[in-house]
Amino acid sequence: TEEYEYTDEQQAREAAREWREKGYTVTIEEHNGRWRVKTG
């Protein structure tokens, strides 16, 4: 599992979409105004 943090929701969603296209399972969670994208 890798985790990436973004301050911008749009960036987080874009990144998540790219990971999904590569076949990863992706979770996005908002935490204190930051967006965490977890792949695994």
Rank of each mutant, 00 (worst) to 15 (best):
T1K: 11
T1R: 10
T1W: 15
T1C: 11
T1I: 14
T1H: 14
T1L: 13
E2P: 10
E2A: 14
E2W: 13
E3W: 15
E3Y: 15
Y4E: 07
Y4S: 06
Y4K: 08
Y4D: 05
Y4A: 07
E5F: 15
Y6S: 02
Y6D: 01
T7W: 11
T7E: 15
T7G: 11
D8T: 14
D8E: 08
D8A: 05
D8G: 05
E9N: 03
E9L: 12
Q10N: 11
Q10W: 13
Q10I: 11
Q10L: 13
Q10E: 13
Q10F: 12
Q10M: 13
Q10P: 06
Q11T: 13
Q11V: 10
Q11L: 12
Q11F: 06
A12P: 00
R13C: 08
R13Q: 12
R13G: 04
R13F: 08
R13Y: 09
E14I: 11
E14M: 07
E14L: 06
A15C: 09
A15N: 04
A15R: 07
A16N: 01
A16H: 03
A16M: 09
R17M: 10
R17E: 13
W19H: 05
W19V: 03
W19K: 05
W19G: 03
W19C: 06
W19P: 01
W19F: 14
R20E: 15
R20D: 06
R20L: 15
R20P: 01
R20I: 15
R20S: 11
E21N: 08
E21D: 12
E21F: 03
E21H: 04
E21I: 04
K22S: 05
K22R: 09
K22T: 03
K22V: 04
K22F: 04
G23R: 01
G23A: 02
G23Y: 02
G23N: 03
G23M: 02
Y24Q: 04
Y24H: 07
T25V: 13
T25W: 13
T25H: 14
V26T: 06
V26C: 07
V26A: 08
V26I: 05
T27F: 08
T27A: 07
T27C: 09
T27Y: 09
I28V: 13
I28L: 09
I28A: 02
I28Q: 01
I28H: 01
I28K: 00
I28E: 02
E29H: 08
E29Y: 13
E30L: 11
E30T: 07
H31A: 10
H31S: 10
H31P: 00
N32Q: 05
N32I: 02
N32M: 05
N32Y: 04
N32C: 06
N32A: 05
G33L: 03
G33Q: 03
G33W: 01
G33H: 11
R34H: 09
R34I: 12
R34S: 09
R34W: 05
W35E: 00
W35H: 02
R36P: 00
R36Q: 09
R36F: 15
R36V: 15
V37R: 00
V37A: 01
V37D: 00
V37E: 00
K38D: 04
K38S: 10
K38W: 04
T39G: 06
T39W: 13
G40H: 15
G40Q: 15
G40M: 15
G40D: 14
G40C: 15
